[in-house]
């Protein structure tokens, strides 16, 4: 009897050489923003140019460490001569561009985006980066009034939205309420919860779970239109999915839809109190990579763990051990 070897020849190398990387873009681009002459490095986005000028631009789906998906449209600006508005977060500057960040059209669209989101999603915790409620400031700045579309319709039953089929919605019949993405929180594991009634569908978690960080592909956008949702394969619970509990989706979620179970439970119990929390940076003890951990501590208990977005080691991303493996620190059993 012969024994099959376990190690084998690798497949042949590709016959064509890899493509050369694109030449680095150099030089500066001159443009005007709100009438001011601005010069920024070629290849910059309008958002980067605005930030360099100190022009505060709202963003929701944008994050430095992720590929721009430009889907929320809250960052739109007017470019002279263009038929439609442009997303500042992904549109590259061009020489001679005339950008307006506070025109009537810009204000209108930003206001409507905030109203449309506010009327369909629980944005109570939403902010441009970490869930911090700062969407409220923009709502005020643009005088957005999400209640214009009527009171919220009743939330859907558990998993009802996940079962909706593309192209077959129940047509509106004239009810006085506004449809929402409301639904019960999905709690199916010890580590984190998914409250998709807070989800603005910014795609950040999908990107973080996919090629932008984790390469696990446990979640994706399923369904279509207003019924589009973040879903595991066949909406199975996280323990049955490909999820490895790195928590990187939680780290990028701007709305609090994805949340440490510890935070969720404290919020439910009314004991979550950010003003009473301290944040301590340390190095993860588990392996030699040396990720920076930020420990959020309340009443001498670690209540959640993040990593700084600007950490050159992590870009804000961690693994299950650094993210969730902190129980041993506070194991204060007898003896």
């Amino acid at each position: 009897m012969s024994i099959d070897p376990i190690l084998f020849e690798p497949p042949a190398r590709p016959s064509h050489p890899p493509e050369a990387p694109l030449a680095a873009e150099v030089g500066a681009v001159e443009l005007t923003i709100d009438g001011r002459a601005v010069s920024v490095p070629a290849g910059s986005t309008i958002l980067e140019a605005c930030r360099a000028e100190g022009i505060d631009t709202p963003t929701l789906c944008y994050l430095e460490s992720l590929t721009p998906v430009n889907v929320c449209r809250v960052c739109v600006v007017e470019v002279a001569g263009a038929r439609v508005l442009a997303p500042a977060c992904s549109r590259k500057v061009e020489p001679g561009m005339e950008v307006m960040t506070d025109s009537e059209r810009v204000r209108h669209s930003r206001k409507l985006v905030l109203e449309l989101l506010g009327s369909s999603v629980d944005v109570g915790l939403a902010g441009p980066q970490a869930p911090d409620g700062s969407i409220a400031a923009y709502t005020e700045r643009y005088r957005a009034d999400p209640t214009r579309f009527g009171p919220s319709a009743n939330p859907a039953a558990a998993d009802e939205r996940d079962a909706r089929e593309a192209g077959h919605h129940h047509a509106a019949v004239g009810e006085p309420t506004a449809a929402t993405v409301g639904q019960p929180v999905k709690i199916d594991n010890e580590l984190y919860v998914r409250d998709y009634s807070k989800c603005i569908l910014c795609y950040k978690c999908v990107e973080a779970c996919g090629v932008d960080a984790q390469n696990t592909f446990a979640i994706a956008v399923a369904g279509r239109g207003f019924d589009a949702r973040i879903s595991t394969e066949w909406n199975v619970g996280l323990p049955d999915s490909a999820c490895v509990y790195c928590g990187n989706c939680i780290g990028v979620c701007p709305t609090g839809a994805l949340m440490f179970r510890s935070e969720h439970e404290m919020r439910e119990a009314g004991t979550w109190d950010e003003s009473a929390q301290t944040m301590t940076d340390t190095i993860c003890p588990y392996c030699g990579v040396g990720c920076t951990l930020s420990l959020h501590v309340q009443d001498n208990d670690i209540v959640k763990v993040t990593s700084p977005m600007d950490s050159s080691v992590t870009d804000g991303h961690l693994c299950i051990k650094g993210r969730f493996g902190f129980q041993f620190v506070q194991n204060r059993g007898p003896g």
Partner: peptide
């Protein structure tokens, strides 16, 4: 029905438009 669902103005706007007409 046919909105892909990517961007907010169309994903939610198309719903609100239908509701107003109804």
């Amino acid at each position: 029905d046919e909105s892909c669902g990517q961007c907010v103005p169309c994903r939610v706007g198309s719903v609100r438009q239908e509701e107003i007409l109804a």
